[in-house]
């Protein structure tokens, strides 16, 4: 077929344009988060002293600062990475925000808590549920974000998928943090990060497999 012939066919299909990719990403992430949110409220729910902790416990509030400092930059990046001409470059450093905050929080925790309690705080009470629940709550957002990226045209499928995995873990961790009784940054560093790394790896693998275009 000659290229001019192909152009005839493409021009005849001019009206088939899909909605802008940024909108698709926003809607998909919204739906994914909503599904996990409803699932979370139906099965686990926020912890009993949620409102009280929000005003009285800096550690509790920090959990949300941390998870959102991951989820929000990951969302903005995923939205960009869905376009082929997006060059992440230095913007990838936004993802260092959450680890940096966590690092500072760990230092503060180690200063304010005696050394003989560090281990107990890190192990906490709820490590196994944390390990299981964060990946489970990540599944719907991850599927949604991968769907949206599939509609897009990511220049680097593995990176786009990985950041999608980070985003899904950020959403899941935000939900789970409101249930989990362990608030120490040492606990977050030990257990929340595992689920996050797992979801990032799954996202990268799925991305390199399914996001080629």
């Amino acid at each position: 077929m000659k290229t001019d012939d192909l152009i005839n066919a493409l021009a005849a299909d001019a009206k088939s344009v899909e909605p802008p990719i940024a909108r698709t990403v926003a809607i998909a992430v919204g739906i994914g988060a909503l599904i996990s949110g409803l699932l979370f409220l139906g099965v686990l729910g926020v912890r009993d002293n949620f409102a009280e902790s929000m005003v009285s416990s800096l550690r509790f509030v920090f959990k949300f600062v941390l998870t959102l400092s991951l989820a929000i930059p990951a969302y903005v990046l995923v939205r960009g990475l869905s376009r082929p001409d997006f060059e992440p470059g230095k913007k990838l450093w936004w993802l260092a925000l959450a680890p940096a905050l966590l690092f500072i929080a760990i230092l503060l925790e180690m200063v304010s808590v005696p050394a003989d309690q560090w281990h107990a705080r890190m192990i906490g009470h709820n490590s196994i549920p944390c390990l299981v629940v964060i990946p489970l709550l990540s599944l719907a957002p991850l599927a949604a974000v991968l769907y949206a990226l599939h509609q897009g045209a990511p220049a680097n499928p593995a990176i786009a998928g990985a950041v999608g995995g980070l985003l899904s873990a950020g959403i899941a961790a935000t939900l789970y943090a409101s249930h989990c009784p362990d608030d120490s940054p040492l606990f977050l560093a030990a257990w929340y990060t595992i689920g996050t790394v797992v979801m990032t790896a799954i996202g990268a693998l799925a991305g390199s497999r399914f996001l080629r275009w």
């Binding site: 077929m1 290229t3 344009v17 909605p19 802008p20 940024a22 376009r83 082929p84 897009g152 275009w213």
Partner: peptide, 22 residues
């Protein structure tokens, strides 16, 4: 020419990924 046509198809099917402000 095969690459040209492949690219034209991709431009067509992915044109919603172009940000109209760019």
């Amino acid at each position: 020419e095969d690459v040209v046509q492949d690219a034209l198809l991709a431009i067509h099917l992915k044109r919603h990924t172009w940000d109209q402000t760019m």
